[in-house]
């Protein structure tokens, strides 16, 4: 399969693909996240078969950027987020968040980040406010300012103050995910790790969450790493996209450059679907078949 990649660097060619307008040169910004040759392996199944979940991944994300990690299920997106969240240790390589090593300076890194995961993980019997107050206290926020801030963020996400006292289990999945986003923003992280934040949401909730991420990009100095398998979402929200496959970032660039690349080098229609299939060498159907066989193997 031809990917158009430098086989050593595994990055998109730096030359401008046809059809992409020249961008004005700009000064490099502060590095928010720097990962170099990160590898993570797990041993799975009864035979403890080693599986490389992340394979020699290097990334540099600038402050204020929304970086998308686009990949199929099982490609390593969530593992990558967990490595940056200090929830997993690196087997090899290094990862720094605003200059702090995720392993050596774990506590400092934890102060700077927060995460939204695919499942809105809460104490479901507790109310949104009880959950948020608990989270705020863990991050050293005073209760009074936590309440004010929680009300403000949730109001922006369409959840009124009167709903803050009811158990979360009585809320829809979409509402719970909005509370999860509020929890992450409450602690004012300078790096927000969003792991498939819209997966499983109804179309309206999905659009609301996406609009909120856009607002964060436009009005806050937020750096966001967003994993998704929704190509339209990646294209809409992300400044740059890295496509991950089998634990490797197989290509990364702006959505426009990636699309232009498949058009110029492969003569394909410039869509993110074609970008994904070109650089992973798989169709979505292939992915489903592969997942199915993996599930069967696990069973």
């Amino acid at each position: 399969m031809q990917t158009g990649l430098d086989p050593e660097l595994k990055t998109a060619p730096t030359s401008q693909p046809a059809g992409v307008a020249d961008a004005a040169p700009r000064a490099p910004r502060e590095t928010a996240l720097l990962a170099e040759h990160v590898t993570k392996e797990f041993r799975v199944g009864r035979k403890k078969r080693p599986v490389k979940a992340i394979n020699n991944v290097s990334l540099r994300i600038e402050r204020g950027e929304i970086y998308g990690v686009l990949g199929a299920n099982g490609s390593g997106k969530s593992t990558l987020i967990r490595l940056f969240s200090t929830l997993l240790t690196l087997d090899s390589g290094t990862a720094e968040i605003f200059g702090k090593d995720v392993q050596r300076d774990e506590m400092a890194v934890k102060q700077m980040i927060n995460r939204v995961s695919v499942d809105a993980a809460f104490f479901k019997k507790l109310s949104p406010f009880e959950n948020l107050a608990y989270a705020a206290k863990l991050y050293g926020m005073p209760a009074a300012s936590a309440r004010t801030e929680a009300i403000r963020i949730l109001a922006r996400l369409g959840i009124s103050e009167k709903r803050l006292g009811r158990p979360l289990e009585q809320m829809s999945r979409g509402m719970q995910q909005k509370v999860a986003i509020a929890r992450a923003l409450l602690t004012s992280p300078i790096l927000l790790l969003m792991d498939e934040p819209t997966t499983g949401l109804d179309p309206r909730s999905k659009l609301e969450v996406q609009a909120f991420v856009e607002e964060l990009r436009d009005t806050h100095d937020a750096t966001i790493v967003l994993t998704t398998h929704d190509m339209a979402e990646a294209e809409r929200l992300c400044d740059r996209i890295g496509i991950i496959d089998g634990g490797r970032i197989v290509v990364e660039d702006t959505p426009d450059h990636l699309k232009a690349l498949v058009a110029s080098d492969h003569g394909l229609e410039p869509t993110m679907e074609n970008v994904f299939m070109t650089f992973t060498g798989k169709s979505l159907d292939d992915d489903l078949d592969e997942e199915k066989s993996e599930d069967e193997e696990e069973e």
Binding site: T86, M107, I113, N114, D119, A121, F122, F123, L138
Partner: peptide, 14 residues
């Protein structure tokens, strides 16, 4: 069981 374990371990607490 609640699914909050990762959030607690990710928080900056000793």
């Amino acid at each position: 069981w609640e699914g909050t374990l990762e959030y607690t371990f990710m928080a900056p607490i000793r």
